[in-house]
Simulated scan of single mutants.
Amino acid sequence: ILKSPDSLDDCDVALILIDTSEGITDQDITVAGYAEKRGCGAIFLLNKWDLVDKSEKGQQAFMKELRQMAKFLSYAPAITISAKTGQRCHKIFDQVSKVYKEYCHRINTGTVNRIIEDAVYREEPSLHKGRRIKFFYAAQVATRPPTFVCFVNYPNAVHFSYKRYLLNQLREMIPLSLTPIKLYFREKSGKMDFSGNTKEMERIREKKKKITQKKMKQRKEQSRKKRERDKKGTQ
């Protein structure tokens, strides 16, 4: 568990293995929390499922407990497997592919605006000091995970419950049922507001830094190989 945060830094889809014979432990939920915090996709692998109460009621109770304890990962699918017999293990990579596809999904700006416009029309946000919160336009600004920005007049005044409502509308209408999605509010003429989430900004900067370093290393290696080929060609 100590290595979990580091291993999730460069992870796109986390496989969270749960030993069902021991039930759902605090450690399982802690690892799930790391995945949610990193913003990566996630899949629960419920190992030793053959040892769980085989009655429909018993299995439903286990799933209900999992969803209750890890409700922050409501989008994460769960696969029941047996590592010992190989039962349903072949389904893991198919599910990883589905989650990753949504994790990298991009939608055009026109569609995003229609979804937000319809959502605001159906249910307007609460007033801010007697004034309406106006939504000017919205756009998707990133993938992995899909990240959206709404341009409004009072970005800090949008209540978290209304943010959750808009996230649910995006998830339902696009649809994006298997991946985390992020939504930020930005003042129309200002810089992007991450709601004071300096950890999120730091994580993004660190990820970009690692990608840049990796590309530089690859270019150096390519240059070295080219020099070796040129040297052999002149001999």
Rank of each mutant, 00 (worst) to 15 (best):
F151A: 01
M216Y: 10
L178P: 05
R219P: 05
P5F: 08
Q213E: 13
L176G: 04
S21E: 13
I81M: 04
I211E: 15
A78F: 00
V52W: 13
F62T: 06
R224M: 14
K64W: 09
M216D: 04
I79N: 10
K163I: 06
K191G: 07
T85C: 10
I24F: 13
N113E: 13
C40Y: 03
D118V: 05
R227W: 02
E102P: 03
I181F: 07
T212D: 15
A139W: 10
Y100T: 00
S189M: 13
K129V: 05
K217R: 12
E65W: 05
R164W: 00
G130F: 02
R186E: 02
N168H: 05
L176V: 14
R227M: 11
V52I: 15
R224H: 11
I92K: 06
K232I: 04
Q59I: 07
L167K: 04
N113D: 03
N108K: 12
E172S: 07
L176A: 06
D9I: 15
I115Y: 04
C150T: 01
Y100Q: 09
S82W: 09
D10W: 15
K54Q: 15
Q213S: 08
E65G: 03
R122L: 03
K232G: 00
G196V: 01
F72G: 01
L127Q: 13
G58Y: 01
L8W: 12
Q59M: 01
E56P: 02
K182F: 10
I174H: 02
R229G: 14
D230P: 11
R227V: 00
K134T: 04
H128V: 06
F136Y: 15
S82E: 00
R106T: 03
R106N: 01
E56M: 13
E102D: 08
Y75V: 11
F136N: 14
L45M: 03
V152S: 09
R114P: 06
K231D: 09
K71L: 05
K208A: 14
E124K: 14
E228H: 14
L66G: 07
I174W: 03
A42T: 01
R219Q: 14
K57D: 09
I174A: 06
D50K: 00
C89I: 06
T198R: 14
V99D: 11
E187K: 06
I43L: 12
F148V: 05
P77K: 08
P175V: 08
T25D: 11
I116P: 06
V141P: 08
N47T: 02
F148T: 05
F62V: 05
G190L: 11
I43N: 00
D26R: 00
E117C: 11
D50I: 12
D28I: 10
D19E: 11
C150A: 03
L45V: 08
F44M: 01
F185Y: 03
S223V: 12
K163C: 13
Q95D: 08
C104D: 08
G41D: 12
Q235A: 09
D19S: 14
L127S: 13
L178W: 01
Y165W: 08
C11H: 09
R171N: 04
K232C: 09
N153A: 06
L127F: 08
